[in-house]
Amino acid sequence: MRNVTLTDIFTHPIAQKYLKRSGVAHAVAVAYHAYRFAVQYNVSPDLAAKAALLHDIGHYEWYTDGKWDYRKYKENDIHAIKGAERAHKLLIRLGENPQHAKEIALAILLHTDSYLPEGTLHQRPLQKVVRLADEADEEPGGKHHYRQIDDSLALKKIRELDQKIEQWLKYKPYEQLGS
Rank of each mutant, 00 (worst) to 15 (best):
H55N: 12
K143G: 00
D69S: 09
A51H: 09
L153T: 06
T112R: 12
E166L: 07
P125N: 15
E139G: 02
M1H: 11
D134Y: 07
E135I: 01
Y63H: 09
G141S: 01
S179C: 00
L90Q: 11
K128L: 10
K67P: 02
A154P: 08
E118S: 04
G95N: 06
A101Q: 10
L132A: 13
A52R: 12
L47E: 14
I9D: 02
H122C: 06
A49S: 15
G83C: 05
K164D: 13
L110P: 00
D113T: 11
R131E: 08
E75C: 00
W68Y: 12
Y115E: 07
K128D: 14
K74T: 09
D65G: 06
K20A: 13
K102S: 08
Q127C: 09
A87G: 04
E166G: 00
K128Q: 12
E135R: 06
L126G: 11
R147S: 12
V28Y: 00
K164W: 09
L132Y: 14
D134N: 11
L177S: 07
K157V: 05
I81A: 12
K50S: 13
V43A: 10
K17Y: 02
D134Q: 06
L155T: 09
A101R: 02
A49C: 14
Y174T: 04
S44E: 13
Y115A: 04
A87H: 02
Y41S: 02
R131W: 02
P140V: 04
E85Q: 14
A51Y: 12
S114D: 12
K102C: 01
P98N: 07
K156Y: 13
V39W: 03
K82E: 15
A136I: 04
Y70H: 15
A25Y: 02
I92G: 02
P98T: 04
E85G: 04
G142Y: 05
P45Q: 15
L54A: 15
Y174I: 06
I104E: 08
K82G: 08
A105Q: 07
A49R: 13
L169K: 09
E175I: 03
L121Q: 14
V28I: 13
T5E: 05
L126N: 13
K82S: 14
R71S: 14
E103F: 00
K89V: 12
A107N: 06
A34K: 02
Y146L: 03
V129D: 10
I81P: 00
E103T: 01
L94V: 05
L94A: 07
R71E: 15
T120Y: 10
A101D: 11
A48L: 03
L6M: 14
I9Q: 03
E85W: 13
L169I: 03
W68S: 10
T5A: 05
D134M: 03
E61T: 05
